[in-house]
Computed example of a mutant assay.
Amino acid sequence: MTTSISRPGIPPAVSIIVVSADSGTSLRECARRGLACTMPLQFILIDNDSQDGMPQAIAQEHAGDTRLTVIYNGANLGFGPAINRAARQADGDALLILNPDCLLENDTLQRLLDHLQRTPKVGLLGAIVHDEQGVADPASFRRDPLVARALRTFFGRAGEGVNIDGPVPDRLVQAEAVSGALMLMPRGVFEHLGGFDEAYFLHCEDLDICRRVRDAGHGVWLAGDVRVLHGKGTSSRHRPIFVSWHKHRGMWRWFRKFDPLARNPLLASVVWMGIWAHFLAKIPAQWWRLRKKRRLSQASPA
């Protein structure tokens, strides 16, 4: 089901697409900040069967705002499939894929679009996403997660890892991959690639599309001079084992598609076992933290 408010005659410069799945109060602020931007835009909120009532509350709060479209999926389709569905209703020449816990400033969109328009052959543009203390997320600027790199990162060994060491850039630079919390793409590039690979449900689809952008001859760039506040997903905290399952499943799919080691059946088997052993090893701590959180919630006064 879609709640769509008629849009004005002026075409938007950018369509902001946000996927929600019990995203909590951060979603409300994300929508408020996005709709507070003064440039022509379209804001598409696509909901993966949230039970917290937040998408409906946002639709009511912004009733009459012609820039807002709310789509109710009625089921959790996954991140990539929801983005692809929303993109089919997008009017903007550019698509800004934004996490529901990312908060835009008024000039953020214009600065990103300026970079997009001035940079030749750009297929995807990211920004520095950071926490409330201003600490940049390492995922803002990273390399393809090839197994050799992932192992160096995991064990803290010297050499080229997934994350790029040193201070984050403060200027526009090319990257292999940027954070999926904020990705700006020309709509033509997105459509040419066929959007996100819908075989990913959650996690690693951002790494996949960065790689496919580059393989198609376009550039992936990081706007190091643009910083965006990024919280941690509420839905992930509610369902840590569910999220971890899909994250590890996404790792395996990315490896099979892009890592040269996947061509060796023996090495591929070792990687498969390593991925799922890592998933199983994380379950006890995740289950314990979730159980403790529920106990504290039940013990707290109403």
Rank of each mutant, 00 (worst) to 15 (best):
Thr3Val: 09
Ile5Val: 15
Ser6His: 06
Gly9Ile: 08
Pro12Thr: 12
Ala13Pro: 00
Val18His: 04
Val18Thr: 15
Val19Gln: 12
Asp22Gln: 05
Gly24Thr: 04
Thr25Asn: 12
Ser26Gln: 15
Ser26His: 11
Leu27Tyr: 08
Glu29Leu: 13
Ala31Gly: 13
Ala31Trp: 13
Arg32Thr: 13
Arg33Phe: 07
Leu35Asp: 10
Leu35Pro: 06
Leu35Tyr: 06
Ala36Leu: 05
Met39Arg: 10
Met39Ile: 12
Pro40Cys: 14
Leu41Phe: 00
Leu41His: 05
Leu41Lys: 08
Phe43Asp: 03
Ile44Asp: 06
Ile46Thr: 15
Gln51Ala: 13
Gln51Pro: 00
Gly53Tyr: 04
Ala57Gln: 10
Gln60Ile: 06
Leu68Tyr: 10
Leu68Phe: 08
Leu68Ile: 03
Thr69Ala: 11
Thr69Pro: 05
Ile71Ser: 13
Gly74Ser: 07
Gly74Asp: 06
Asn76Val: 01
Asn76Gly: 01
Asn76Phe: 05
Leu77Trp: 13
Gly78Glu: 04
Pro81Val: 01
Ala82Gln: 02
Asn84Val: 05
Arg85Met: 09
Arg85Val: 03
Arg85Ala: 10
Arg88Pro: 00
Leu96Glu: 09
Ile97Glu: 02
Asn99Glu: 15
Leu104Phe: 14
Asn106Arg: 13
Thr108Cys: 13
Thr108Gly: 11
Leu109Phe: 07
Arg111Thr: 13
Leu112Thr: 14
Leu112Phe: 12
Leu113Met: 14
Leu113Glu: 11
Leu113Val: 13
Gln117Thr: 10
Arg118His: 12
Arg118Met: 14
Pro120Arg: 08
Lys121Asn: 14
Gly123Asn: 05
Gly123Val: 08
Gly126Phe: 08
Ile128Leu: 15
Ile128Arg: 12
Ile128Gln: 15
Val129Cys: 12
Gly134His: 13
Ala136Ile: 00
Ala139Pro: 00
Ala139Lys: 09
Arg142Asp: 02
Arg143Phe: 02
Arg152Met: 00
Thr153Asp: 05
Phe154Glu: 10
Phe155Gln: 01
Gly156Ile: 05
Arg157Cys: 00
Arg157Asp: 00
Gly161Asp: 01
Gly166Asp: 01
Pro167Trp: 00
Pro167Gly: 03
Val168His: 10
Asp170His: 07
Arg171Ser: 15
Gln174Asn: 07
Val178Glu: 03
Val189Asn: 11
Glu191Lys: 06
Leu193Lys: 06
Glu198Tyr: 01
His203Asp: 14
Val213His: 05
Ala216Gly: 02
Ala216Arg: 04
His218Asn: 11
Gly224Arg: 03
Val228Trp: 04
Thr234His: 15
Arg237Pro: 00
Pro240Ile: 04
Ile241Ala: 03
Ile241Pro: 04
Phe242Ser: 05
Phe242Met: 03
Ser244Leu: 12
Trp245Asn: 03
His246Gln: 06
Lys247Tyr: 12
Met251Gly: 03
Lys257Met: 10
Pro260His: 04
Pro260Glu: 04
Ala262Met: 01
Asn264Tyr: 09
Ala268Val: 03
Ser269Gln: 08
Val270Asn: 00
Val270Gly: 11
Val271Thr: 02
Met273Lys: 09
Trp276Leu: 05
Ala277Met: 04
His278Met: 02
Phe279Pro: 05
Phe279Glu: 00
Ile283Asp: 03
Pro284Tyr: 01
Gln286Gly: 01
Gln286Lys: 11
Trp288Tyr: 09
Trp288Lys: 14
Arg291Ile: 01
Lys293Met: 09
Lys293Gln: 15
Leu296Tyr: 00
Ser297His: 14
Ala299Asp: 10
Ala299Pro: 02
Pro301His: 10
